[in-house]
């Protein structure tokens, strides 16, 4: 079952998306169609290998889809090149399972990199070169995730939970309208995972951002999402509001 919302407030729309690997022998996404309204929080569920991460990467063309279209904020991403593609990507924060910070650079520099696509170019390569206003904004983003006191520390010296918070601050520094998160807390212990997820969703809510997150944690999915989209073998199997869904019902997705 799929749903396409119609209207001006669509943050993200995917139509007929297909992707396969190894010359077409391994289909990963098969005719995926969905649309997500602005401010909506969507959990993407499904067993390993069902195409969730590929779907997120295809949305930003980090992986090139074989067919289908992706619209972000009313702009068709598929078919864009160069600056046009970079502009759309700049409006979408992507948070990875592994934080993907640059370990040898300071925490503040890593957060400043979130402003790379906003025309500041080399001024934000290092925090020492950055304009005062951007440094101030980066520190504010760090403050939002409770790590302003670690601004000078090397990113490689942080714990897993702290690193993921910095990655979230970097995504917020982009001033995005949408955030995609690929298992953002999967590598954290249960307590840190709850803390980071709670903080992440609170910040997303406060700023009115659209959120699509992949998770294997069904409790998180039900607690933090407005809508659940489940994939099985590259196709959308369920697309339902999160309210009233029992976790036990969702376990069937993994069988």
């Amino acid at each position: 079952m799929t749903a396409i919302a119609v209207g001006a407030d669509i943050a993200l729309a995917v139509r007929g998306l297909r992707k396969s690997f190894q010359g077409g022998r391994v289909p990963v996404l098969q005719d995926v169609t969905l649309s997500i309204r602005s401010g909506e929080r969507v959990a993407l569920l499904g067993a390993n290998g069902c195409g969730k991460s590929t779907l997120l990467r295809c949305m930003l063309r980090l992986i090139e889809p074989d067919a289908g279209t992706v619209d972000i904020g009313g702009v068709q991403v598929t078919g864009l090149r160069g600056r046009g593609l970079r502009r759309v990507r700049a409006r979408v924060g992507l948070v990875f399972q592994k934080h993907n910070l640059v370990p040898r650079l300071s925490v503040l520099t890593n957060v400043l990199h979130g402003a790379l696509a906003r025309g500041l170019s080399f001024r934000v390569w290092r925090q020492s070169w950055a304009p005062a206003a951007e440094r101030e904004r980066a520190l504010t983003c760090l403050d939002m995730v409770g790590l302003a006191h670690l601004a000078d520390r090397r990113a490689g010296q942080l714990s897993g939970g702290q690193s993921q918070r910095v990655a979230i601050a970097r995504a917020l520094m982009q001033q995005p309208t949408t955030i995609l998160a690929d298992e953002p807390v999967a590598s954290l212990d249960p307590v840190a995972a709850d803390e980071v997820m709670e903080m992440f969703c609170r910040l997303v809510g406060q700023q009115g951002l659209t959120l699509v997150f992949v998770s294997h944690n069904l409790e998180h999915a039900v607690r933090y999402a407005d809508r659940l989209i489940a994939l099985r073998a590259g196709r959308i199997e369920r697309d339902v509001p999160a309210t009233g869904v029992q976790i036990e019902e969702l376990r069937g997705l993994y069988e």
């Binding site: 930003l60 980090l62 593609l85 970079r86 502009r87 759309v88 990507r89 700049a90 409006r91 979408v92 924060g93 992507l94 990875f96 592994k98 993907n100 910070l101 640059v102 650079l105 990199h113 979130g114 790379l116 696509a117 170019s121 080399f122 390569w125 990655a167 970097r170 995504a171 982009q174």
Partner: peptide, 19 residues
């Protein structure tokens, strides 16, 4: 990982390389 993250946020190739 880090180059992919910077590419995903719309950074130019030269910035991805330098940063």
């Amino acid at each position: 990982g880090p180059p992919e993250a910077l590419t995903a946020m719309g950074a130019r190739n030269v910035s991805v390389f330098a940063c």
